[in-house]
Design a protein around this nucleic acid. Structure first.
Length: 326
DNA sequence: GTCCAGGTCTTCC
DNA sequence: GGAAGACATGGA
């Protein structure tokens, strides 16, 4: 995986208004923004943030590198906030963000990117062993995003036995066909992630036409469950991880692994450690090279070995094994 | 052409 | 409870 070098990206200037500054990240204080200072660009001061690794490490599936920036659409939670087109660039001062329309409150972005999170205490809490040292050294600055639960849940239902590049294709088709248009520069076409209500009205055949195969009935039934109020995604935030996981696993097509991805990438439960084929490979190769522990044994090991920030440790191992140990 | 992909579900023992 | 096979599709 190609990493962003701080010196690679040009420090282009905004053509609309003056950019705002947010001081964030380790040792910095978040500045509160009042509606009076609406702007279409901002620079968020961060340290230890590998934007490329973070946006391409299999957490989110809608980011693409174009015109010297990372283009994406960030949606709100529970439909309460609109979706916005955004371009991100990393330079020596931080993450520069551009939007298509003026923004007065940028917390939707800093929350998504988790730019106010101090990374060092998390890395320091990892177990002091060779695999973790190697994983951290190979992708220092990798972060966990905080995604809208519905988009995260639906995307990971589509992820089963799919390569990340294919998940991206399916999600792109789904957004194009069922999402709402989102304002973007030059009248280019971007769409929101479709709501559960919209997908609940789709037919299985329409969903299959997005190349999701046998996952179509799972996505449809889950969209209907959420749209009908049988599962309140927002209420899961307040629950213990075990209860939230059990509720998610009631949904069709959602097993332990997909539930854990949602708990980690959308709700931010720090101790949750999703075990997929790559993490299984990493754990067996790095921690049990002479045995071949079963999935259940690996889960038990991961629950005790990686500590309070096991979720972060998992993402480092996942990215490490995918990019360096293939 | 074959293998495999950020799995889950059903069936069978 | 655990193993095995089915499920769609396309990249490598």
């Amino acid at each position: 995986m190609k990493k962003n070098n701080l010196n690679l990206l040009p420090d282009s200037q905004s053509t609309v208004g003056n950019p705002q500054w947010i001081a964030a990240g380790p040792g910095c204080v978040m500045v509160d923004h009042e509606p009076a200072s609406a702007s279409q660009s901002i620079t968020i001061a961060v340290r230890h943030y590998d934007l490329a690794a973070t946006l391409t490490s299999g957490q989110a599936f809608r980011w693409s590198w174009r015109d010297n920036g990372w283009i994406g659409v960030i949606g709100g939670s529970a439909g309460a906030e609109r979706s916005r087109w955004v371009r991100l660039q990393l330079d020596e001062t931080g993450i520069r963000a551009e939007t298509a329309e003026p923004v007065s409150d940028w917390r939707w972005l800093t929350h998504y990117l988790q730019t106010d999170l101090e990374l060092d205490p998390i890395l320091s809490a990892f177990p002091d062993d060779e695999p973790m040292r190697a994983a951290v050294n190979s992708c220092a600055g990798l972060r966990l995003l905080r995604q809208p639960p519905w988009e995260c849940l639906a995307s990971f239902i589509l992820s089963s036995t799919k390569q990340i590049v294919q998940i991206r294709q399916i999600v792109a088709l789904l957004c194009e066909r069922f999402g709402e248009p989102v304002p973007a520069p030059d009248h280019s076409a971007f769409h929101s992630f479709p709501s559960p209500e919209r997908l609940a009205r789709a037919t299985e055949a329409e969903l299959r036409a997005c190349k999701m195969g046998f996952r179509a009935p799972y996505l449809l039934a889950t969209a209907q469950a959420v749209a009908d109020g049988n599962l309140h995604l927002e209420s899961l935030r307040q629950k213990p991880a075990e209860l939230a996981r059990a509720e998610l696993m009631q949904l069709p097509g959602v097993g332990r692994k997909i539930a854990d991805c949602v708990l980690l990438f959308a709700y931010g439960f720090p101790e949750v450690f999703p075990v997929d084929v790559w993490v299984t490979k990493a754990l067996r190769r790095l921690y049990f090279p002479r045995r071949r522990p079963k999935l259940k044994q690996l889960r038990r090991f991961s629950e005790t070995h990686f500590g309070a920030h096991a979720g972060y440790a998992q993402q480092y191992l996942f990215h490490y094994v995918r990019t360096k140990l293939k």
